[in-house]
Amino acid sequence: MILTNIETIPGKTIVEHFGLVSGNTIRAKHIGKDILAGLKNIVGGELTAYTELLQEAREEAVSRMKQQAQSLGANAIVNVRFSTSSVAQGASELYAYGTAVRVE
């Protein structure tokens, strides 16, 4: 499965379009991590636990999108976009969407 966020895949030609595919996941913060982050909030700097959490969640959203594309018979997704929204206090949604295509 090849992913790009431009309209084409360099070196390949698109032979079939399958339309929009998407994947999402909603993650809440771990309370222990939240307390640590609260302490880190005093001194500032990177919150590594959150970076990892969001990265992991985004990968899950991408893999769900890939699964959907695979079930349609696509072998690539072009024009992928990410979006993040906070649904509730302490939880955020990671969303990935793109156009499933078959390339040769």
């Binding site: 982050a37 990177e46 919150l47 970076t51």
Partner: peptide, 11 residues
């Protein structure tokens, strides 16, 4: 071509 990304959470 391949999609790449990077992220950071800063407080």
């Amino acid at each position: 071509g391949e999609m790449v990304y990077g992220s950071a959470v800063i407080s």
